[in-house]
Nucleic acid binder design. Structure first.
Lengths: 292, 292
DNA sequence: AAACTGTCTATTGTGGATAAAAGACAAAAT
DNA sequence: ATTTTGTCTTTTATCCACAATAGACAGTTT
């Protein structure tokens, strides 16, 4: 197989949800924009829907014939892109499986393990190398530098520099800048989650990312914004791995965020710095604790 | 051809220089260490040297038969690795050829242009993307973000943050840390070049990189050190492109470096910050000037 | 005993092939 | 006049093959 048709399958599943809500589908270009795929893929979806007797399709007429059933959907495993599969598989190996720093990483073995070609694994490793967890020896293997205490300290050092700077520039945004509205929405969500923390504490991780990314984005510096990718991936897999005291930790972080948000809104540099530092300090401690 | 034998050719050329200086070559493993290649490559080199009647090789005995002639060397074009060729070719396109920001980059076209396979171009682009000059649209083309004024400003903003922090930690290195000796050597070179600036001003670029990399390295932070790669590549190609007032600019930068070095040696934080800021400011101005 | 060589195997780097997906352009429909 | 569709071409994502290179191991030499 040259290329997996995961784009098609994923878009098909999403299109089924649209279909469930109307009696006829819009034009091909409009569907393409909605689903974020090309017309070629849209036409493949429509063809498949016709085959499944879900749709009567003739040029502009796209009449829904019946509601989609669970078996019409493609299984979730088939809609993940290959690079996501490789990423997950790799992260599981290095975070879960006792991967020692200094260990060699073998493209071929990794590819066989995942059941994929070497090219894809190789491209993944190249992309992943910017996170500083692996390093290439040319013409030879990769070296796992490991998710160590040093890594966490180096990561948080840069994060703190970047976030303090970004927070300061956030305060300087014009009052009508859309970021303030985003900040309001994020604050509201914080209150909502805190009000029902026992049931909703798991939503923190995603909200955390959204909040910090908003702050970083206000720096208008691509290097600062891009760096946040590293934070995201580290915390993302980290939360999956380390769940001790999650409820408590998240509640504390939410409170710190609210304080930080209030400081941003005050536009008082000293207050912002204090709130930002306090939160970043506890975030760093949380990360360090979970390492050993 | 599956793989270029540039490693062999380059190591062969370097081995010829060793051969010119002795009457017999050392053991295979020792040669391997000296040249930084595997024994397989060393044996290929020895075989080739035998063919050219340069060497009588029997097990441990590797007797030099004659001095290498210019025609024994492989031509320089054949010793460059494919990724270097792609990099140069790509940089020429985007720096020299009026490449508009927003332009699409086509893997296939680039590969045809350079005369190479798509895989290598693709891998280059992935590696290169961390420099923030291009961006990928999945399942579609790359976008050239361009070497713009914004790019230069974002780059120097982060550079200044990192270098100020690194310079401060440099001052905190133990007096017997090898970095101090490196600093002395670099300072001596500065004096030497300044003493003969008219003839040697071109050596500045390399020395500049060496000096700043030394400072960044003292941060002991992989993200800070890795970021310096971006500075390196930008300045490297930039110096090739913009040569106006090179002699003057370099002389001024050398003086600033000497001041900065003296400040580092004084270990006085305030003085270090002043010297560092002054130099970074003029480096930024130089870069910005050359952009439009 | 330590280092070196001969031989063999495994892995990386790179081009080429192919299905999936994007996208261009003209004809058709509103 | 714009938007939509039909058709076709181009490009990307991925696998595979193969030469270059690295590396392992046993036997040999110092």
């Amino acid at each position: 197989m040259a290329k997996q048709n995961t784009v098609f399958k994923d878009a098909f599943n999403r299109c089924l949800k649209l279909l469930a809500e109307t009696s006829s589908l819009p034009s091909e270009p409009e569907l393409g924009t909605t689903l974020g795929v090309s017309r070629t893929t849209i036409r493949a979806i429509l063809t498949r829907m016709e085959e499944l007797q879900l749709l009567a399709w003739d040029k502009r007429a796209k009449v829904v014939l019946r509601q989609p059933k669970p078996e019409d959907y493609y299984p979730a495993e088939e809609t993940d892109s290959l690079s996501d599969i490789i990423e997950r598989s790799f992260m599981r190996r290095i975070l879960a499986g006792g991967a020692e720093p200094g260990m060699q990483i073998n493209e071929l073995e990794l590819a066989r393990d995942i059941g994929t070609g070497t090219t894809s694994v190789r491209e993944f490793l190249i992309r992943f190398s910017r996170f500083g967890l692996i390093e290439k020896r040319p013409n030879s293997h990769w070296i796992l530098k490991g998710f160590t205490r040093e890594f966490a300290l180096e990561l948080t050092e840069v994060r703190e520099m970047f976030e303090l700077r970004s927070a300061a520039s956030f305060a300087a945004l014009a009052p009508d800048h859309p970021a303030w509205a985003d900040l309001n929405r994020i604050e509201t969500l914080h209150h909502e989650i805190l009000a029902d923390i026992d049931n909703r504490y798991k939503e923190f991780s995603e909200l955390d990312e959204r909040f910090h990314l908003l702050v970083h984005t206000s720096s208008s510096n691509r290097f600062i914004v891009d760096f946040y990718d590293i934070i995201t991936i580290v915390f993302h897999y980290h939360y999956q791995w380390n769940k001790t005291n999650a409820r408590e930790r998240n509640a504390r972080a939410l409170e710190e965020h609210l304080d930080y948000i209030a400081a941003l809104r005050s536009r008082d540099p000293a207050r912002i710095e204090t709130a930002c530092r306090r939160h970043l300090k506890s975030a760093r401690e949380t990360l360090l604790q979970s390492i050993q």
